Simulated scan of single mutants.
Amino acid sequence: MPKIIDNLHEKIFECSLKLFGEYGYNEVNMKRIAKELDIAVGTLYNYYPNKQDLFFTVLKKSWQQTFFKLDKVKETNYSSRKKLKYSIKILYDEIENRKGLGKELTKANVIKKESLDGIKDRLDGIIRNLVEELKKEEKIDIDKEIEERLIRVFFLSVIDMLDKYAKEKENNIKFINYIIDCNFK
């Protein structure tokens, strides 16, 4: 008689999030996840047809939690500048908590590009809206091309700072805030 595992979907998510975050996409396979969960590989395939679908589900679900936090920032009475900086801090914390999973967003060969586009587009839209709000509130005029590059730099800086200066969180956030302050004045 097969064993019944309560909340197996949630356990698969938590285990996969941990393994993908710790080892990255290429170093994790379905067999490893099943072994960690102490289930048969076939059971895992009953839930997900392949590693790519499982990875994207984990990635998407973990980012939904981040988007919820970022949406809450929009509802605050903070100044636009503070909202932008606080959102960058949330992104930093969230990517840091995901460990390697956050960096997978920048790797084009991991999963289908269209699978990542929704996440990247939503992040881009959030940052873009905060920048527009800041420009309007503080009456800042900035070249559109520079603005586009800055929006990209904010997200990529978080990933790069976590990679290069992993143990310097306070300085990393301070640096990104410096970029904001230098370019939006």
Rank of each mutant, 00 (worst) to 15 (best):
Arg98Gly: 08
Lys35Trp: 00
Asn109Trp: 15
Phe184His: 02
Lys69Cys: 06
Lys83Leu: 05
Tyr25Glu: 00
Ile142Ser: 04
Leu130Thr: 03
Cys15Ile: 11
Lys35Arg: 08
Asn129Ile: 10
Thr57Ser: 13
Leu37His: 05
Arg98Ala: 12
Lys85Ser: 05
Val73Ala: 01
Leu134Met: 14
Tyr48Ser: 04
Glu137Pro: 00
Lys51Cys: 06
Trp63His: 12
Asn26Ile: 00
Phe56Asn: 15
Val73Glu: 00
Arg128Pro: 01
Tyr45Lys: 04
Tyr48Phe: 15
Ile146Leu: 14
Glu132Met: 06
Asn77Asp: 13
His9Tyr: 09
Tyr45Met: 03
Asp53Met: 09
Glu96Gly: 03
Asn26Phe: 10
Asp93Thr: 06
His9Ala: 09
Ser157Lys: 05
Leu70Arg: 02
Gly24Arg: 04
Asp181Ile: 06
Ile151Val: 15
Met30Trp: 03
Val58Phe: 14
Cys15Asn: 10
Pro2Asp: 11
Leu17Thr: 02
His9Ser: 11
Lys72Gln: 13
Ile39Ser: 02
Ser62Ala: 13
Thr43Trp: 02
Phe154Met: 07
Gly125Phe: 06
Asn109Ile: 13
Phe68Gln: 07
Ile179His: 04
Leu17Ala: 08
Val73Phe: 01
Lys120His: 08
Asn7Val: 01
Phe155Ala: 10
Val58Tyr: 14
Ala108Arg: 11
Lys135Ala: 06
Leu116Met: 13
Phe154Ile: 06
Trp63Glu: 06
Val110Ile: 11
Asn171His: 15
Glu36Gly: 04
Lys135Arg: 08
Lys11Arg: 09
Lys107Ala: 11
Lys31His: 15
Phe56Gly: 07
Glu96Leu: 10
Lys113Trp: 09
Glu148Cys: 07
